[in-house]
Nucleic acid binder design. Structure first.
Lengths: 251, 251
DNA sequence: CCGCCGATTGCGTTCCACGCAACGACTAGT
DNA sequence: ACTAGTCGTTGCGTGGAACGCAATCGGCGG
């Protein structure tokens, strides 16, 4: 483990919330400001941070570049994009693409709602495993033993009155999801929002990602949400087809 | 300057192009693989990289998180988004938002074209200063002396037959841009694409960013492109208003 | 079963990153 | 204008962190 690198990563994390001064960063990281200065200089030389003004630093363009270069090289994202955009335009609601990697579910693409109500989510943000529709889809696609291990490890933090709070209930829900081919989040994460999600599959039928539509309850009741399922499934199928084709040509 | 941090940043950069093995990374960075392993472990503990399989590493989710958290906290981007999206839906063409920071012009948002023809651009990518419409808008907004210093420092790499290749021509072009309030890229960057761009202004009339529309020449000729200018200017005005700009403050 | 390749670990050494303290630049208050 | 205070910056000596080496482990294929 590298101490200086670790400290630098802490700095980057702090800078993600907005410009910071040397002292703020030093205090946050718990090190001498001289040390922070040196680290920032190195980060600056590689364009990972840049000076905002005389005393503020902010994240630099290299980070955006890296992140988007890497996102762009994900076949799922590129392949699914047209289908998702179409779904977004058709329904007018927020559309997410999420994938499971490194033990967590992460949003890798997002199409904003046309309505004023916006969700607090973001590309790169982690989705809770126990109370989001995308996570249910992705976990439901795993082998049973892995599913169970994961279910046992989850900390079932209750977010709303509907949040699933036990491993048993979670596993039962996953079975239902696998059965019917799509997942629901019935206001289990946020009181005012419910979602439906479906899997995007690759060449050999493996689940690569999950698409979801999130709708404020004031705009659509439960039946209205379910009425979106056919469109969702069509989108998922179309995205899957796009992945089936490119997956063959890709390494 | 921190040696280990610097090496780690090189590793991240290498990983942005896709998964790599320990040896590949060690060779690329020119250090012993033990060193690489240690750095990767630190990066992994902070979710900046993750293991792809037994012998491949890839960028982790923390990077996406950071980048998008930071992008999200940019007021311009959030404020301008609705206007840009509307322009994208209205015209069907690629819409970019770019800003000048740290001596370079960077795309901070992008709305894809509805047509099959796609531009090779990306959020986080740097835009060339001498042959893109957004850069012209942003540089034209600077104080004359700064403009001249910048113009003198540019390496005028010719991209097409129309690319501006001298500082004199560039400065003349900037003057014209400042005069008429929008910029053109008449196939100066890519043969088949031309663009128009306009400034997004803040409260005190200062230029915060630039919006552009990029159109393949096969879809729209030069006059057709110019016909988009009113829509572009309306969008820019609407985005400016969202950023606190009042017409009274106009310079 | 063995040989090969790449990841991993233990270890001694070196040099690099650390904090201290002094300095410089700038601001604000009187 | 002077001064006090704040924050960024620099030089330096020291300790420990990061380095590369070499040995070991582990998986895969022959």
């Amino acid at each position: 483990m590298s101490q200086s690198l670790d400290r630098a990563l802490v700095l980057l994390d702090a800078l993600a919330d907005g410009p910071r001064t040397l002292d703020q960063l030093a205090e946050h990281a718990g090190v001498h400001k001289t040390t922070v200065l040196r680290l920032l200089r190195t980060l600056e030389s590689r364009r990972f941070v840049q000076r905002d003004d005389a005393r503020h630093y902010r994240l630099g363009t290299a980070l955006f570049d890296l992140a988007n270069r890497s996102l762009d090289s994900r076949d799922v994202r590129r392949a699914a994009e047209p289908a998702l955009r179409e779904l977004n335009e058709l329904t007018g609601h927020t559309v997410h693409l999420a994938s499971y990697e490194g033990g967590e579910v992460v949003y890798i693409d997002k199409f904003e709602s046309r309505h004023q109500v916006r969700m607090y989510s973001r590309v790169g943000k982690r989705a809770a495993l126990h109370c989001t529709a995308v996570a249910k889809v992705l976990v439901a696609a795993m082998a049973p033993d892995r599913r169970e291990r994961l279910a046992a490890a989850i900390d079932y933090v209750p977010m709303t009155a509907n949040t699933i709070t036990t491993a048993e209930a979670y596993l039962a829900e996953l079975a239902a999801v696998a059965e019917r081919g799509y997942a629901l989040d019935d206001s289990e994460h946020e009181d005012f929002i419910h979602c439906v999600a479906a899997p995007v599959r690759g060449q050999r039928g493996e689940v690569l990602a999950a698409v979801s539509v999130s709708v404020p309850k004031v705009l659509l009741d439960h039946d209205g949400l379910l009425a979106l399922v056919p469109d969702l499934l069509r989108t998922a199928a179309s995205a899957s087809a796009a992945c089936g084709h490119t997956a063959a040509a890709q390494t």
